[in-house]
Design a protein around this nucleic acid. Structure first.
Lengths: 194, 194
DNA sequence: CAACAAAACTAACGACTGTTAGTTTTGTCA
DNA sequence: TGACAAAACTAACAGTCGTTAGTTTTGTTG
């Protein structure tokens, strides 16, 4: 029986292709045979590298969760105002969206298909992230860099707005990435500043 | 053979239950047998009322599209500033979200599973809606009720922010609907006003 | 009650799903 | 070159899917 090493390059290759197909076809509509076909291989061969389909989704979500958690810790450790921290996070979100779109999309929209036990863990991680973000907004109101707003509503609005970039990513009618990023940041920060 | 009337109450009942299940389980993961079970009936019996599974999705999306299109026409016909029109549309979006959550969710997130020919029509309708919305923003800048912003970015940001209410809808930690609506409207309009 | 249609039922079809067992090819070292 | 493991293969499993054909029940109308 194969060993299923935790970090082979082949495994990562499969994960990336799976992310791409999960995004374009949806998790439930993407069969192992389709993933295999796009890698020029038979479906059964995939099981030499991964334990199963659900692992693919779980791993993609976990990797994304880790990336965001690391950035959050870095931002929290930097001595800046709440508004500056917020801008840093927003810019990071946008960058991830541009450079790792498929994985970002999966962890945002396909996590619902996670198997129940890991789904709970994933949601807990995400709630933790949002809690940290809410804390940053509250800090911004205390240090005077932000107007008094409802912190939870603010986080929800900010994250949702960024999520919407997906539509632009799929169909950028004439707007280049730089303009898009600057215009959206400008608009969102305007909603926050006193 | 059954006649498949266009507007029987039973058909509408099936549509609503399907919308609920499509939302909670996803379109691809919701089988005809599951829908039937939730209606206390066998799967085959559904075919006395509807032509097939894909019809359910198509009909839900079409009904939502119609609702938004009607509201857009009404707003356009009212002689108000661009900012007031925008507020009216935002409030309508929120109201639909609160009163017809399942259907709203489907037409927002599950339209990707539409069969190809109707998918094109659906996307065209949506692009038309967004184009109208963009025009309203531009009008707002002309009539002085709004700050100079990138109209397409503004529409994307506004619609995405509202879409995010889904997360609150699913898990409203202590915020009542009224507060949520007012706080979000306040925040979004602040981003728009001069 | 007889007649008729609406709407339920049972049973099955072919296609597709994730996964497994067992076998063969491929590539890398001694 | 011979040995060994990694990674591909073929073939098949049990289960689910949307859908259809044909039959029976239910409910209303004359």
């Amino acid at each position: 029986m194969a060993k299923l090493q935790n970090d082979s390059p082949r495994r990562q290759q499969i994960l990336l292709k799976a992310a791409e197909l999960f995004r374009t076809h949806g998790y439930a509509n993407t069969g192992m045979r389709l993933i295999a076909e796009h890698l020029g291989v038979e479906a059964a061969s995939l099981y030499n590298h991964i334990p199963g389909k659900s692992f693919l989704l779980k791993e993609i979500c976990a990797q994304m969760g880790q990336a965001f958690e690391m950035q959050m810790q870095e931002v929290l450790a930097t001595p800046t105002t709440g508004l500056q921290k917020t801008e840093a996070l927003l810019r990071f979100h946008i960058q991830i969206m541009l450079t790792r779109f498929d994985e970002w999309y999966i962890s945002n929209w396909q996590w619902q298909h996670l198997v129940d036990d890991y789904k709970q863990e994933f949601l807990q991680i995400r709630r933790g992230y949002e809690k940290n973000f809410t804390g940053i907004i509250e800090a911004g109101m205390s240090d005077g860099s932000m107007a008094p707003i409802h912190p939870q509503v603010a986080v929800l609005t900010l994250l949702s707005a960024i999520r919407g970039l997906e539509f632009w990513q799929r169909n950028p009618h004439g707007l280049d990435a730089g303009t898009m990023e600057e215009e959206m940041i400008k608009m969102l920060l305007k909603a926050l500043t006193p």
